[in-house]
Design a protein around this nucleic acid. Structure first.
Lengths: 206, 206
DNA sequence: TGCTAGTTTGTACTCGCAGTACAACATAGG
DNA sequence: CCTATGTTGTACTGCGAGTACAAACTAGCA
C-alpha cells in the first residue's frame, strides 16, 4: 500500500479541490474517482478508502512544509533571521497549495485522529518553532520568554491561521508575492509586538 | 425549530464530549440519543439532524465567547488593557468548555460550511480584535501597523490556537487558573514580541 | 369534561453510499 | 510463456441517516 505510483499520485491532487470545497463527507468516493479519472476499484487497491485519500494528500502537504521549513532553518544566521525564513517558507508552501490547506483545516478533526498525521502535524508546524525559540535565547537574537511552550503554540497559531485564512479567502494569482507580504506582517507581530513604543517593557506584569 | 426547550438544550451538552472525541462522523445519531437520553425521534423533531446538533452546540459556544469578549471590551480603559481583558475572556470561555472547543476545531470544515456559524465565528473571534487594533492606534496604546488585517488575523490565530491546544491537551482541573497563565503568555507575545531588546525596532524591514 | 394543538416517542421503513468480493484483463520481467 | 503484480468493471452487502406515521401525552381553554 505504501508506494503509490507517481502517475496516480499526481492525479489525486485534483481531489483536493473537491475535498476543500465540500469536505470529505460531502465528497463521494465516486466523485473522487470521476474527478481524478482513477477508477474506484483502483483507489481501493492502493489506499484505505476515503481517509486514505485525505491522509495521502495531507501527508504530502506536511512533508512539503516541514521540508521547506527545515531548509530555511538550516542556515548559519542567527535564530531571529532563521525564524523569519521559516515563517516565509511555511507560508510560501501553504499559499502554493491553498486547496490542500483548506482540506486540512476543514477536516482537521479527522486529520488529527489519523495517528501518523497528528505526529506529522507536530513536526511540520510546531517543533521547528520551539527549536528556534531555544536557539534564539542562546544566541541572543530572541529574548527569554516566561512560558516558552505557550508562546511557541501561539506563534504556531499566528503563522498557521494567517496562512489558512489567506488560503481560504481565495486562491491568489500571485502566491509567492502574497506569501512575502503575509510573512512580513506575521514577523512584524511576533518579533516586535503591537504595543506602542511608549508602553514597551510594560508587558511583564503578573 | 428555533426555540429548543431548555431541558433538552442542557442535556444536549453530553453530546459534545462524544463529538469532540470521535468527530461528528464517528458519532451515530443513536449514540447521541443514548448519551443525552433524548430519543432519536425527538432530536429530529427539534433539530435538523446531526448538523443541527453541532450547529446548536457551536452557536452556543460562540455566543458565550462573543458575550464575554464584548463585556471585556466595554470598559473605559485604553485599548491595550481592553485587549488583554478580551484575550483573557476568550481563553476563559474556551477552557471552561474544552469539549465544545474540540468539537468546533474537529469539525471546523463543517462548521464553516454552515452559513450562520461562519458569520458567528467571525463576529466572536475576529471582529473584536480588529476593533481593538483600531482603537489602540487612536488612543496611542498600540502602535500603528502596516498590514492591520493580516496582523489581526495572526493575533486571532495566536489566541485561538493557544486556547484550542490547551483544550485538546486535556481538560484541566483548574480552568480559570490555566486561562490566566495562558493569556499572560499570549499577551506577552502579541504586545511585546519576542525579539531581544537589542534588536527592538529592527523589525520594520520590508 | 371534552376539544384542539403542540409535543414526545417507538417502530418500522427507505435509500444513499462506503467498502468488499471477485473475475477478467493487462503488463512485465525472468 | 508463465507468474507476480497491478488495473478495472460489476455486482453485492451492510451500516446508518433520515423519514413516515401512529399512538400516547400534555396543556390551554371553552
Amino acid at each position: 500500500m505504501r508506494k503509490l505510483p507517481a502517475k496516480l499520485a499526481s492525479r489525486l491532487y485534483s481531489a483536493a479541490e473537491l475535498i476543500a470545497e465540500r469536505g470529505l463527507d460531502g465528497t463521494k468516493i465516486d466523485d473522487i474517482a470521476d474527478a481524478t479519472g482513477i477508477p474506484k476499484a483502483t483507489l481501493y487497491y492502493h489506499l484505505e478508502g476515503k481517509n486514505g485519500v485525505l491522509e495521502f494528500l495531507l501527508t504530502d502537504l506536511l512533508e512539503m512544509i516541514s521540508g521547506a521549513v527545515g531548509l530555511a532553518m538550516s542556515s548559519t544566521e542567527d535564530a531571529q533571521t532563521r525564524l523569519e525564513a521559516a515563517v516565509a517558507a511555511q507560508l510560501g508552501v501553504m499559499l502554493e497549495h491553498p486547496f490542500l490547506c483548506r482540506a486540512l483545516v476543514g477536516d482537521l478533526g479527522r486529520a488529527t485522529r489519523l495517528p501518523e498525521l497528528a505526529a506529522a502535524l507536530r513536526s511540520a508546524f510546531f517543533e521547528p518553532i520551539e527549536q528556534l525559540l531555544n536557539d534564539g535565547v542562546a544566541d541572543g537574537s530572541l529574548r527569554q520568554i516566561e512560558d516558552p511552550n505557550a508562546v511557541a503554540t501561539s506563534i504556531f497559531g499566528a503563522i498557521t491561521i494567517a496562512g489558512l485564512s489567506a488560503a481560504v479567502d481565495g486562491p491568489l494569482a500571485e502566491a509567492s508575492m502574497e506569501a512575502t507580504r503575509l510573512s512580513a506582517a506575521v514577523c512584524d507581530l511576533i518579533l516586535g509586538g503591537i504595543a506602542s513604543a511608549r508602553d514597551a517593557g510594560a508587558t511583564n506584569r503578573a
